[in-house]
Design a protein around this nucleic acid. Structure first.
Length: 408
RNA sequence: GGGGGAGCGCCGGAGUUGGAGAGCCGGGCCGGUCUGUAAAAUCGGUGCCUCGUGCUGAGUGAGUUCGAAUCUCACCUCCCCCA
């Protein structure tokens, strides 16, 4: 760990077990943790404006180096003064390195692959070669042959001007065996060294840099990767790669990784964001999470809501809601729940009105923001376990927090 | 009143003019899936039953034929044109 305070300072203000309440001080302001990070993959949180995302309370969003590299490209972003200015977002920005996308091109859908399911569309991979130097691939936009390695990724993240850059890594698939995962993880470590070297030489002065732990589902590899990454001069640590095929295995992977990371490092769990997983991660000491779930489910007609069966995805398109005059979720402070009925949202969603997408996206993001805000308050109050228990019993986040107000 | 055209499954369309469909494409409807976003995406189901080599089915009825969604006749409905 380097923890250069000029780039990033992580202040821990309260603890509850292994969970912590903190503040990430970035070049674009503070980020209260534990935090959920909405995805703005291509420079927009899908369906919303930057102002709306800020109004929901988010202080950090995630852009994607790979997508922004293809379009609008480094030159255009530099000319526009970086992504903050281009998209009208003046709070903190973290950029994923593109490692995940490079491998999703090879697998059709890493989302399936890393969970142990089969890729959705086999045989359309655009990867031409994965080598020590980096990855050659074809643009999915126009077929242009392109190359990205550690240096290209960091140069692009410099052009974007993110507050936190991530190391260029290989996201190891679930079906990779021990030997492949070991070789891949070692290559990711060598790429980490190249990223660090490029970043120290050319990176924006106030841009922080996070390393990424790999190692698949193998305890030995996770420990080795955790120790290797922790030893590098970095400002924080992301946990990536396959986290197993189900939630119990994901928690196992976390438990085999987290003990080997520096206690005071900001810890980012890549790609995780279902409500119960946020709590599981927070309890283990994770500080920030990013995930496509709230925005994607919103576009697919699903609302986050505690359900009687212990799940939390309400299908708004279901006929059951056609005449339901109640709010999406009782007590939710979002625009969809305050101003509209389930019946209206049901109708809008079936009619494929953009308004439905926007309202559900607003709701889902509100739900997760309130969930982590509740966790922050609970940690300060030393009541995280009680908070988690009330959530597990089906309380919505705004009704499950400590009685003594909130820490929003 | 005359002439022409068309009728199948919840809806629309294509197609076959004697060897066969409980078929095809859209849509709707019902349900599933989605965790570092090539996802406002995607995958199923959608006549009946006792679930099988099962039954019914091409506007309605009759006929020709070994065999009819296809050919003939009558009728019904809709569309277009002419009066």
């Amino acid at each position: 760990m380097r923890s250069d305070p000029q780039r990033l300072r992580f202040e821990i203000t309260a603890r509850d077990g292994r969970a912590r309440r903190g503040v990430l001080h970035t070049a674009h302001g503070p980020v209260r943790t534990p935090a959920f990070i909405p995805l703005a993959t291509t420079g927009a949180v899908r369906g919303l404006t930057a102002r709306e995302v800020a109004e929901l309370g988010f202080e950090l969003i995630l852009g994607n180096t790979f997508h922004l590299f293809l379009r609008p490209g480094a030159g255009a972003l530099r000319e526009r003064g970086g992504l903050h200015r281009f998209m009208g977002w003046d709070r903190a920005l973290i950029t994923d390195s593109g490692g995940f996308q490079v491998f999703s091109l090879a697998h059709g859908s890493v989302a399936d692959e890393i969970k142990g399911r089969r890729g959705r569309v086999p045989g359309h991979g655009s990867i031409l070669e994965i080598a020590e130097e980096g990855v050659r691939f074809r643009s999915y936009i126009d077929g242009t042959e392109l190359f990205m390695g550690p240096e290209e990724s960091l140069a692009m993240q410099a052009a974007i001007g993110s507050d936190i850059a991530l190391a260029f890594d290989e996201c190891t698939p679930f079906h990779a065996d021990y030997d492949y995962t070991a070789r891949s993880t070692e290559r990711t470590h060598r790429w980490l060294d190249r990223c660090v070297a490029w970043h120290q030489e050319h990176g924006p002065p106030r841009q922080a840099f996070f390393g990424i732990v790999q190692g698949g589902i193998y305890e030995e590899l996770r420990r080795a990767s955790a120790e290797r990454v922790s030893a590098a001069p970095i400002d924080g640590i992301s946990i990536g790669g396959t986290l197993g095929e189900d939630k119990p295995q994901m928690y196992e992977v976390l438990d085999m990784t987290l003990p080997h990371l520096p206690e005071d490092a900001p810890k980012h769990l890549l790609g995780i964001g279902e409500p119960d997983d946020l709590i599981a991660g927070i309890k283990r000491g994770i500080d920030v999470f990013d995930c496509a779930v709230p925005t994607r489910l919103g576009r697919h007609g699903m609302a986050l809501a505690p359900l009687p069966d212990g799940r939390y995805r309400l299908n708004v398109r279901s006929t059951k809601l056609a005449a339901d005059e109640g709010p999406l979720v009782e007590g939710c402070p979002c625009e969809a729940c305050r101003n509209h009925t389930r019946a209206y949202l049901h109708y809008l969603s079936r009619a494929e009105e953009l308004t439905a997408v926007r309202l559900l996206t607003l709701h889902n993001l509100t739900y997760l923001e309130r969930l982590v805000a509740g966790a922050r308050a609970a940690i300060e109050a030393g009541e995280l376990d009680a908070y988690a228990a009330r959530l597990a019993d089906g309380s919505p986040p705004w009704a499950a927090g400590p009685k003594a107000g909130s820490a929003r």
